[in-house]
Amino acid sequence: MAPKENRDPVDRMVDAYESMLERVDEMLEAAEKTTLPVLKKSLDTAREKAVELDELAREEAEKIAGCLERDMKDAAHFLSETGEDFRNWFRFDMQLIEGRMMEMFAKVADRTKLELDRFAEQAKEASRYHTGEITGPGTLVCTQCGKELHFHKAGHIPPCPKCHATEYRRQED
């Protein structure tokens, strides 16, 4: 891996998102209780590890942890509201998603689903995605013009290529 200062900042943020997700998955797998406090502690630990390993500055790590928490809450909300299969949350052919990341994300979302059910309404209102943030795989829809952006892996959210707006929502049925 190239030194932190020689890498593209967006690539560093996308890599950090995936690393934090992997760390949270590992910690939750080892945990006996699957409660929101365990999720929060796991996110905090993953964030601190990214800073400790000099992968990200503290402010960057805070931002990525917030994005990761938002995506996990959004996935858990989808599961609790629809009862559908997790793959429908992604809205595109599962073969396009790296198997390892899909497995980690599914495990984290499944573990947090029960506890996050009671936060479902808050999560729905708060699940707005903005230009400059990092998001996990899935389809985002521009809130201004309806243009869809498809993410096959974690990525940086750009301005809408059609109308240049900066706010998106996750595609719903």
Results as ranks from 00 to 15, higher is better:
residue 4 K to S: 08
residue 5 E to L: 08
residue 6 N to T: 00
residue 7 R to I: 12
residue 13 M to C: 08
residue 14 V to A: 05
residue 15 D to E: 13
residue 22 E to Q: 14
residue 26 E to M: 15
residue 28 L to H: 04
residue 29 E to K: 12
residue 30 A to W: 10
residue 31 A to I: 04
residue 32 E to Q: 12
residue 33 K to Q: 09
residue 36 L to Q: 03
residue 37 P to H: 09
residue 37 P to L: 09
residue 38 V to F: 02
residue 40 K to I: 10
residue 41 K to S: 15
residue 46 A to C: 05
residue 47 R to G: 00
residue 48 E to R: 04
residue 49 K to S: 02
residue 50 A to C: 01
residue 50 A to V: 02
residue 51 V to H: 02
residue 52 E to S: 00
residue 52 E to R: 02
residue 55 E to G: 05
residue 58 R to H: 07
residue 58 R to M: 08
residue 61 A to V: 04
residue 62 E to P: 03
residue 62 E to S: 11
residue 68 L to E: 00
residue 68 L to P: 03
residue 69 E to D: 04
residue 70 R to Q: 06
residue 72 M to V: 15
residue 72 M to N: 14
residue 75 A to H: 04
residue 80 S to A: 11
residue 80 S to E: 01
residue 89 W to I: 09
residue 90 F to Y: 14
residue 94 M to T: 14
residue 98 E to Q: 03
residue 100 R to T: 10
residue 102 M to R: 14
residue 106 A to Q: 10
residue 106 A to M: 07
residue 108 V to L: 02
residue 109 A to N: 01
residue 109 A to Q: 01
residue 110 D to V: 02
residue 113 K to F: 05
residue 113 K to S: 14
residue 114 L to E: 08
residue 116 L to T: 05
residue 119 F to R: 11
residue 122 Q to N: 01
residue 123 A to T: 09
residue 125 E to V: 12
residue 126 A to N: 13
residue 126 A to E: 12
residue 127 S to N: 10
residue 128 R to I: 15
residue 129 Y to C: 08
residue 131 T to V: 11
residue 133 E to K: 06
residue 134 I to Q: 12
residue 135 T to H: 00
residue 136 G to S: 01
residue 141 V to I: 07
residue 141 V to D: 08
residue 141 V to C: 05
residue 144 Q to S: 14
residue 144 Q to N: 15
residue 146 G to M: 02
residue 147 K to L: 13
residue 148 E to Y: 11
residue 148 E to L: 12
residue 150 H to Y: 12
residue 152 H to M: 07
residue 156 H to M: 09
residue 157 I to V: 01
residue 160 C to N: 12
residue 161 P to L: 04
residue 161 P to D: 09
residue 161 P to G: 06
residue 162 K to N: 15
residue 164 H to W: 01
residue 166 T to W: 01
residue 167 E to Q: 15
residue 169 R to P: 13
residue 172 E to Q: 13
residue 173 D to H: 07
